[in-house]
Simulated assay, not measured.
Amino acid sequence: MKEKKKKRTWLRVIGIVVLFIVLGAGAYAYSIYKSLTNAAETMHHPIDRKMSEKRVEEITLEKQEPFSVLMLGVDEREDDRGRSDSIIVLTINSNQNSVKMLSIPRDTRTEIVGYGKEDKINHAYAFGGIEMAMATVENFLDIPIDYYIQINMEGFKDIVDAVGGITVNNDFDFSYGGVHFPKGEITLNGDKALLFSRMRHEDPRGDAGRQLRQRQIIQAIIKEGASLSSLTNYNQVFNALGNNIKTNLNFNEMVEIQKNYRAAAKKVDQISIEGKGTKIDRIYYLIVPDEEKQRVQDELKGHLEIK
C-alpha cells in the first residue's frame, strides 16, 4: 500500500512544452510535423466542461493572454480511475515572460466540488475524473483553470529517456529503491528519475521535499527538450508523449502556445503552499490556513492579471 502511495510524480506538461519547442525548430520539417500531429491527436482528450465561471471571456491565445494549466500525475490501474497524487498548477504570462509553478500537497483538505464534502484534494479525480479535479482546484485557488494535462506516472520514465536523460541539482543526499542520490549535480535516466521523484519518508521535509524534486524534474525536461539534439530522437519523444499524456489542448492551441508563449518557459518560478498536518477521524490531512491560501491566490491572480 505504501509503495502504491509513493507512485506520485510530477511530470505533467513537460512533454507538451517539449512539443512546443520542437515545433519551433523547423528541422526535418515534414517528418517532424507528421509525427507531431499524430502525437497531438492521440493526446487530445476534450472534456465536457464549459468555460470557467471565473472567466469573463474565453481565453484568446492569439492575443497572448495569461492562462493556467492543471497538471496531474495519475497512477492508472485496470478498472480503476486512480488518484491524482501529483498536482501542479502552472500559470503562464507572456507579458512577463514567466511561468509560476505551484505544487499542491495531495493530502490538502478542501471542498470537493460536486461531491458535497471536504476531503483530500487528490480524491477529486477519483470521485469525478478530470472535470471534478479541475473544479476543485479552481475553487481552492480561486482562479480559473483553463487547460489540463494528465500524465501516466509510470510512463513518464519513457519521456525522460526519450529526451536523453535529465540533470538536476540534488540538495539532499539520500538512497532510495537501491539507488544512491548524492548531493549536488546528478544525471538521471527514466528509472532513476521516477525513484528521485517518489522518495518522501526519508526526507525531513516530507512531502514538501518530494514536491521540490518533482518540480526540478519538470524544469530539467523543459531544458533537455529545448535542446536541438533532442530532434534526432523526435520519433521516440513523440511516441512517449502520445502514449502517456492526455490533454484538452488541441494541436492548433499547442501551435499558438509555442508561437506566443515560448519565451516564458525560460523563467520558471517555483512556489509552494504551507499547512499543518493533523488527523480527523484518524485520517491524516494537511490544513492550509486562510491567510496562506490567500497569499498564494493573490500571487497567482496577479500573474494571470485577474483583478
Score class of each variant (00 low, 15 high):
residue 66 P to G: 08
residue 203 D to I: 09
residue 105 P to W: 11
residue 253 E to K: 11
residue 7 K to G: 01
residue 220 A to Q: 03
residue 104 I to T: 15
residue 12 R to V: 03
residue 292 E to G: 01
residue 89 V to C: 07
residue 39 A to V: 14
residue 203 D to K: 14
residue 181 F to I: 11
residue 214 Q to F: 10
residue 64 Q to H: 10
residue 137 V to N: 10
residue 261 Y to V: 11
residue 223 K to M: 09
residue 290 D to P: 10
residue 202 E to L: 05
residue 115 Y to G: 02
residue 71 M to N: 06
residue 228 L to N: 11
residue 24 G to L: 06
residue 163 V to G: 00
residue 283 I to H: 06
residue 274 E to V: 13
residue 246 K to W: 09
residue 152 N to K: 10
residue 115 Y to C: 03
residue 12 R to N: 03
residue 297 Q to L: 08
residue 190 G to D: 06
residue 215 R to F: 00
residue 232 T to R: 09
residue 115 Y to S: 13
residue 52 S to W: 01
residue 178 G to K: 02
residue 216 Q to V: 00
residue 64 Q to R: 15
residue 266 K to S: 15
residue 174 F to S: 14
residue 176 Y to G: 09
residue 51 M to C: 07
residue 267 K to S: 12
residue 201 H to W: 12
residue 181 F to N: 04
residue 207 D to M: 01
residue 29 A to H: 14
residue 69 V to A: 07
residue 61 L to I: 05
residue 125 Y to G: 02
residue 81 R to P: 04
residue 49 R to M: 03
residue 29 A to M: 11
residue 194 L to M: 15
residue 126 A to M: 05
residue 202 E to M: 06
residue 60 T to D: 00
residue 112 I to S: 14
residue 259 K to W: 02
residue 70 L to F: 04
residue 157 K to V: 14
residue 187 T to F: 11
residue 259 K to M: 11
residue 121 I to L: 14
residue 36 L to P: 00
residue 171 D to G: 03
residue 95 N to W: 15
residue 215 R to N: 06
residue 39 A to D: 03
residue 93 N to D: 13
residue 40 A to T: 06
residue 115 Y to A: 04
residue 268 V to T: 13
residue 292 E to W: 06
residue 89 V to H: 03
residue 259 K to F: 10
residue 39 A to R: 03
residue 66 P to C: 07
residue 165 G to Y: 00
residue 65 E to M: 11
residue 261 Y to R: 08
residue 3 E to L: 12
residue 232 T to H: 05
residue 270 Q to P: 10
residue 20 F to L: 11
residue 172 F to V: 13
residue 200 R to M: 04
residue 220 A to T: 07
residue 89 V to R: 04
residue 101 M to I: 12
residue 190 G to K: 10
residue 263 A to R: 07
residue 228 L to F: 15
residue 35 S to V: 04
residue 186 I to T: 15
